[in-house]
Every structure is written in structure tokens, then in C-alpha cells.
Design a binder for these strands. Structure first.
Length: 590
RNA sequence: GGGGCUGUAGCUCAGUUUGGUUAGAGUGCCGGUCUGUCACACCGGAGGCCGCGGGUUCGAGUCCCGUCAGCCCCGCCA
């Protein structure tokens, strides 16, 4: 139907007759001479129609074209006149002189424009999602989805090259008590019973290890029925990896090798080995388990110096066993009161009661904290004239997130240049448990993380101090992946589940199949899952996952194009043995 | 579940602070002129449930209450 893509027409084809097919991107009608930009996935090319080379009938057809009409053009590749060349465009040196034009399909005037003038705003996201086929025709989204394809292809090739098998796991699975809410799927055959869509293939990949598959990978769709964010969709895609007889180092090596091959596909850089940092160190130095290491600015514990000042608030904090932690900003004294107040606002927004500060001037220190400085305070803190000291006092669970937020705000306010553009890091040794109050424990990650053997003696006495063989891959402050070595011992797995508050019966009902499998001779194993949507969004420079997903959901978890979810007919529910409680919307449709 | 922002022509937005005659602009669309345009240019025209419902008022795009939708955030979620 066509001889090549519109964007592939090139200068060395001058004189050739070509046939292209695509959409009318734009038409410029000069009267006797008409120019068309013809677009397909490969790009744009200008077609010109004029009486010297285009028959009268074709001329009329060109005159009648509107945007997004689908056409086929046969013509001769010609160089443009000298003064009409556009070297900045891929096909700007040439044009196709129209001999023949066929209208393949008429388009109604697009509700939202595909063509966009320079600096013209995008239509609202609501309309972009409702008219997604038009939005997807834009070069940016075409390129984002093409990037996703290249990432997926390279990923499969990489793991294939390392002996991994791509194995599919079920979409209809067993509801899990832990973690996120499940999407439930009613079983018609077993009325009153439900499948769940997988939150991840976690248990299946462990079962595959136990079954002896050694090295598994899958680009897997995952589902979590939780509220959305710009970086969270109810269905998302993971590069899911698991291997047997491995240690964390093996996983790091594979992931670093993978990322080093993926990054160049998007013009990013990843140079292994990546930085390593324990969770404790990340929280201590950056207040976050996913620190943005493009900036080296870090947090210091200044309890000793600041707690000794005649400042009741700080003395009290230290007396309670709390700490005073600071960020010291070189040149930060140039910030205005208003700008510093914005930093304080960042701290408050993250849950801190406030933020203390001191401006270091030539001969003195000012501000609510600077007023209390002693003669030697400045020297003991290593502060220089022009610096700004920001301090937060309190328990770490308050000061860490607050200083993390302040750090980001300060970097932005002072326009501190990053020391690198691509900061990759492993954050390791996450706590196995988190405190959910009243002495109850929850799994910090999931209940299958292998506790560090060195911490095993703390399991009963100080479970919150137990670190796991768990690790996150962090890129520029975004968590792109998360994994761990798993528990392969049935007794330990049972013990951990019990610590999480599950009764013996519940453990058997919910996890009996796993424990049973572990008892059949499970190899030591571990793995990781990398977020494809996040990787693609980061690499494509997209601010939202929606820009790297063909048909994403809105923040209210709706699909605007096709209109899902939707009510269903009563008879369909009846067949599933389901009746709805209370009112329901009228628009039931089968 | 909670907080914030937004909703006016097909699209992008003014107008809402301080209620007042006929709600504007750009672009797109329709018609016309135009042989080197590429945001073509020029002339003319059509196009509005001011998200929806209620209230206050002589009078509501504008004020109040409710509601729906989109986006951002907290909770939630790795």
C-alpha cells in the first residue's frame, strides 16, 4: 500500500516515485499551490500539489482535505527550492510532488488538535484521556511508547543472554491478606468465591524457584486497588526477576548490567557499580530511603553543640533523648525571610512542628537559632560567613521526613547545581518490620524477606532492629526497583508470619501452599522487581506515568476513553451469585 | 476518607477580587482571494446550558450551599 514511511523520505531519493500513506497533519493552501504535511509513525514529510505536476482531479482532492484525513500519496521526491529548505527538519530538504492522491478515510474535525503550534498549550488531561487516540498520535507519546518497547525488548534480550526464562504467571490468583487491597474477580463456577488479580507475581516466582527454574524473568502486569498518584496507577508493569542460589551481589550485578544497557536507549547514563548505602545511612544522611544523590548536601547530627546552647527547646529535646539534626547551606544566608519561611513550610508540610534557622553573617549569627549562638558555636559547626543553618529537633521519625523535604526545597530555592545528572544507588538492609502501634508489627516490604543472619538473634528481643536482605534501586530520588533475598526455610517463614499477627489456622489457609512448597526442598533464592512505568517516565522526562501508558486511568481510577468501570446488568450479577447492597446507578449495561 | 487547584466557544484562555446593558481574545471550523508555504497571508462568517443542581438578589459567569469531573497532595500504597 505504501513504499516507505513518511519520515523516511530522504534527499538521496530525489527523482524516485514513492507512495506514502498517513494522516493530513496540516495543510497550507496558497491557492494555486497547496502544501500538505503528511504524518505517520515515522515522521512528517511535505507533499506539494501544483498544476505543473498534479492532475486537476487530484488538485481538487487535495483542496478538500482536512486535518487527520487518511490519505495515500504517490509522487516524485524532489529537492525543495533553495529558499524553501528547512534543514532543521528531518525531511526539510525535500518534498513529494503529488501525482496521485487517494482519500482512504475522512476524519471529522478532531475534538482536540493533533497538530500543535509552537508554545501552544496541551489540551486538558481530561480531554486528552477521553480522546486518547488523537492524543496518542502526537509525536511525544508515539516516542514514549516506542521507548517503552525498546526498554522491554532490551530487557528480555539481556535476561535471555544471562540464562533467564520468561515464564508467565496467573492473572487470576488467590487473595492475599498482606499489603495492598486486591482487585477481586468473582468466580461464576464457584459462586461466592473470588479470585484476586496479582499485586505482583511474588509468590509464583518463589514457587518457580522451588520448582527448579533457577532464573526467571517476566514483564508482568500488577494490580493494586489503592488510591492513585502521579507516580501510581492501579495497574502497572514490573520487570519481575527471581533467581536461585544467589546473594544480593548477584542481583545488583544483573540489575546494574541491565540498567547500563537500558539508559542509553533514552539518552541517560548508568555507570556501574552503583553507590551503596544502608537504609540506616540513607535515613541518617538524607532523611529518606530514596535519597536524591544528584546533590551531596547531607544532614548532620548537631545535638551536642546545639543542645548545649541556652535554648530551652533544644535542651529539652536532647534531655528527652531526641536529636537535633541540621542542613548547612553554603551561601544560604542570601535567602530572604520569606524564602526561609517557605523552607519552614516544607518542614511543616512533612509533619514537623517547625524549623529553626541561623544566618551566618560576617560578625554574628541571626535568626531564631542564631541568636543563641555562643562565640565558638560557629566554628564548632564549621559554618562560614554567608551560610544558612537549618535545624530540626525531635524524634527521627519526625526530623527525617522534614529534613528530606527541606533539603529538596533548599536545593530548589538556592538553585544548587547537581554534582551529577544521573545518580544511581542501592539502598540496602531495610528493616524487616515496621511498628504499627500497640506493639503490633507489619512487614516493611512483604513477609517473605530474609532477615540478615547477623540480626537473627534480635528477632524475639528487638524485632524492629532486625534488618533484612532487602534492597531498593534508586535513581535521582525515585525508587525504580525493590527486592530481597527470600526466606526459603518453612519454619522461619512460619515464625515471621506469626510475628505479623497471623494465627496458626490463618497461616495454613493463606500461606499453606507456600509453606508446603518450601518444605519440598526450596533453594535459597531472591530477586527484584523494577517498575517499567517509572523507568520509562523517568527516561522519557514525563511528569506522570500517564504519559508512558497508552491507556491510563485517571486519579479516580477511571478509564475515560472506553468508560470503565461500569455497572453491569442484574442477570450478569445473578450468574455470579452477587447482589448489590443499597442504591446503584441506573445505567446498567450488559 | 481528608485538603488544595481547576471547570467560560471544538481547543487554549481572559472576564469572577468589587453582581449590572449584547460574555471577549487567540486558534480551530465554514466561505472567499492567493504559485513556494511550513504558526502561510489577507477578507468575511458561524459558533456559548459560563460543569450540573439549589439558594440569595430587582438582577448571578461573578456571592452562598450542594454535587460531578480532571489534576496535585495527605491518608493508603513499595
Amino acid at each position: 500500500m505504501r513504499s516507505l514511511g513518511a519520515g523516511r523520505v530522504a534527499l538521496d531519493m530525489v527523482g524516485e516515485t514513492v507512495t506514502i500513506a498517513g494522516w493530513v497533519h496540516r495543510r497550507r493552501d496558497l491557492g494555486g499551490l497547496i502544501f500538505l504535511d503528511v504524518r505517520d509513525r515515522s515522521g512528517l514529510v511535505q507533499a506539494s500539489a501544483g498544476p505543473g505536476w498534479t492532475a486537476a482531479g487530484a488538485m481538487d482532492a487535495v483542496r478538500a482535505l482536512g486535518p487527520e484525513d487518511v490519505i495515500r500519496v504517490r509522487g516524485i521526491v524532489q529537492p525543495r527550492p533553495e529558499e524553501a529548505r528547512r534543514p532543521e527538519m528531518a525531511t526539510g530538504e525535500i518534498e513529494i510532488q503529488v501525482i496521485e492522491l487517494e482519500l482512504l478515510n475522512r476524519a471529522r474535525t478532531p475534538t482536540i488538535p493533533v497538530y500543535r503550534a509552537p508554545e501552544e498549550e496541551l489540551p486538558s488531561e481530561k480531554l486528552r484521556l477521553r480522546h486518547r487516540v488523537l492524543d496518542l498520535r502526537r509525536a511525544e507519546l508515539q516516542e514514549s511508547l516506542a521507548l517503552r518497547h525498546r526498554l522491554a525488548l532490551e530487557t528480555r534480550n539481556f535476561f535471555h543472554g544471562h540464562g533467564f526464562l520468561d515464564i508467565e504467571t496467573p492473572i487470576l490468583t488467590k487473595p492475599t491478606p498482606e499489603g495492598a487491597r486486591d482487585f477481586l474477580v468473582p468466580s461464576r463456577v464457584h459462586s461466592g468465591e473470588f479470585f484476586a488479580l496479582p499485586q505482583s507475581p511474588q509468590l509464583y516466582k518463589q514457587l518457580l524457584m522451588i520448582a527448579g527454574f533457577d532464573r526467571y524473568m517476566q514483564i508482568a502486569r500488577c494490580f493494586r486497588d489503592e488510591d492513585l498518584r502521579a507516580d501510581r496507577q492501579p495497574e502497572f508493569t514490573q520487570i519481575d526477576v527471581e533467581a536461585s542460589f544467589v546473594e544480593p551481589e548477584d542481583i545488583y550485578r544483573w540489575c546494574e548490567g541491565l540498567v547500563a544497557r537500558l539508559a542509553p536507549l533514552a539518552g541517560a547514563v548508568a555507570e556501574p557499580p552503583f553507590a551503596r548505602m544502608s537504609w540506616d545511612e540513607a535515613m541518617e544522611r538524607y532523611g529518606s530511603d530514596r535519597p536524591d544523590l544528584r546533590w551531596t548536601l547531607d544532614i548532620h547530627d548537631r545535638s551536642e553543640v546545639l543542645g548545649a546552647l541556652d535554648f530551652r527547646l533544644l535542651r529539652g529535646a536532647v534531655a528527652r533523648g531526641e536529636r537535633i539534626r541540621t542542613l548547612q547551606l553554603e551561601g544560604g544566608a542570601r535567602l530572604s525571610r520569606r524564602e526561609i519561611a517557605a523552607l519552614e513550610g516544607a518542614a511543616r508540610g512533612a509533619g514537623a512542628p517547625g524549623l529553626l534557622w541561623a544566618k551566618i553573617l560576617e560578625d554574628r549569627a541571626t535568626g531564631p537559632l542564631g541568636r543563641f549562638f555562643r562565640d565558638d558555636t560557629r566554628a564548632r559547626l564549621g559554618l562560614a560567613s554567608g551560610d544558612l543553618l537549618l535545624a530540626a529537633a525531635g524524634p527521627d521519625r519526625i526530623t527525617s521526613p522534614a529534613l528530606d523535604a527541606v533539603r529538596a526545597a533548599a536545593i530548589s530555592a538556592l538553585a544548587i547545581p547537581p554534582s551529577t545528572r544521573h545518580a544511581w544507588a542501592w539502598v540496602t538492609r531495610f528493616p524487616v518490620f515496621e511498628d504499627v502501634g500497640d506493639g503490633a508489627l507489619a512487614a516493611n516490604h512483604h513477609p517473605f524477606v530474609q532477615p540478615d543472619p547477623a540480626d537473627m538473634h534480635l528477632l524475639d528481643s528487638a524485632p524492629l532492629s532486625v534488618r533484612g536482605l532487602a534492597y531498593d534501586l534508586v535513581y535521582n530520588g525515585t525508587e525504580l526497583g525493590s527486592g530481597s533475598i527470600r526466606i526459603h526455610d518453612a519454619a522461619l517463614q512460619r515464625r515471621i508470619l506469626a510475628m505479623l499477627g497471623l494465627g496458626a489456622d490463618e497461616i495454613e489457609t493463606k500461606f499453606g501452599f507456600l509453606l508446603d512448597a518450601l518444605g519440598t526442598g526450596a533453594p535459597p533464592h531472591g530477586g527484584i522487581a523494577l517498575g517499567v512505568d517509572r523507568i520509562a517516565a523517568r527516561f522519557a522526562g514525563a511528569s506522570s506515568l500517564r504519559d508512558v501508558i497508552a491507556f491510563p486511568k485517571t486519579t479516580a481510577a477511571r478509564a475515560l476513553f472506553e468508560g470503565a468501570p461500569t455497572a453491569v446488568a442484574d442477570e450478569d450479577l445473578a450468574a455470579l451469585g452477587i447482589s448489590l447492597r443499597g442504591r446503584r446507578d441506573g445505567g446498567a449495561s450488559g
